[in-house]
């Protein structure tokens, strides 16, 4: 009977801190999804972002080995910086962006797995880095992550109009005298801040899902930029809440599902629903025809 009341009550479970904290963090990440995520989508940086989340992984492992939970964030920041430098160097040697990202991704990721396995920790710890500690997160973690996310959102909001010009028509923006390279650097810093904040708290997998999925879903549902931003934020918040709610319901029936992965799957389910709705309205077809040209 308690299971049934839990099922019909969507709010009370989140009054307990161990669910309130992750919900707050997921809402902050939803706002990042509507700003930084939309920028990633418009600049087609999904693969670079994927590379970045995997590059952060060895940093998490080193940080955890040296300083435990407190070492995660410094480790992630260090690894993101190292990855950015390597990426820039590879790009300078004339490697195409995808090649450079793929090289960085595999190198850093393998390095992280070797580190974790060699450090002799339990096999479960790799899963920890992937799926995060969504339910065991502390107020201090939430505070730091929200501060990093707020900085990233502020960077994108402040340079938003110029970012839009540079994403839409880079050579036109250069001709108009905009500092296109500086804008790219600011945008990449914002993406890295969100990836670092999310990886250290909710794990590598959910970090990537949060940056990419809501913006892609919003794009399938909307045609205007403003609607896309609003939809991405709402999508991130609602699927985040729904994912946590599902975790609680599964716990009630005795299933111990990994929270980060469950939330990520909920987002994907929402994305598929968005694609289907968009498809019924015939919009993605028009978009596909447009990009094929």
């Amino acid at each position: 009977m308690t299971g049934l009341t839990g099922l019909v009550d969507p709010i009370t479970p989140f009054a307990v801190p161990f669910l309130g904290r992750p919900l707050l963090l997921l809402v902050a990440l939803a706002i990042a999804a509507g700003t930084v995520g939309v920028l990633v989508h418009l600049r087609r940086l999904e693969f670079s972002t994927d590379g970045l989340t995997h590059a952060v992984f060895p940093g998490l492992a080193i940080g955890a080995a040296l300083g435990g939970t407190a070492g995660l964030l410094p480790g992630a920041i260090g690894a993101a910086l190292a990855a950015a430098v390597v990426l820039a160097l590879l790009a300078r040697r004339g490697q195409p962006r995808d090649t450079a990202v793929a090289i960085v991704l595999t190198t850093f990721f393998s390095f992280g797995v070797v580190l974790v396995s060699a450090s002799g920790r339990a096999a479960g710890s790799i899963a920890d880095f992937f799926f995060g500690r969504l339910l065991t997160i502390t107020w201090a973690d939430v505070g730091t992550s929200v501060a990093l996310i707020a900085t990233a959102v502020a960077l994108v909001a402040l340079t938003g109009r110029m970012q839009l010009f540079a994403a839409f028509d880079p050579s036109g923006a250069r001709r108009a005298g905009l500092p296109v390279l500086a804008l790219e650097v600011v945008g990449t810093i914002a993406i890295a801040l969100v990836v670092v904040a999310a990886s250290a708290s909710v794990g590598t997998l959910l970090a990537l899902a949060v940056v990419i999925v809501p913006a892609a879903a919003a794009r399938a549902l909307t045609r205007s930029l403003r609607a896309a931003i609003g939809t991405a934020i709402a999508f991130g918040a609602v699927t985040g809440w729904a994912g946590l709610w599902i975790v609680v319901q599964l716990a009630h029936v005795g299933v111990d599902a990994a929270p980060g992965a469950t939330v990520a799957l909920t987002m994907i389910a929402g994305y598929l629903a968005a694609l289907a709705i968009g498809g019924l309205r015939g919009r993605p077809a028009a978009a596909a025809r447009g990009s094929a040209r």
């Binding site: 109009r161 839009l164 010009f165 839409f168 923006a173 905009l178 794009r219 990009s291």
Partner: peptide, 27 residues
């Protein structure tokens, strides 16, 4: 102000004509 000979612009990019013109104001 410059009007290039050809621009590589993605027709699926979600911006209105007005938003594109407003971009010219950003410098």
């Amino acid at each position: 102000g410059a009007l290039p000979q050809a621009s590589e612009i993605d027709p699926a990019f979600p911006v209105t004509l007005e938003q594109v013109v407003a971009m010219g104001r950003t410098p």
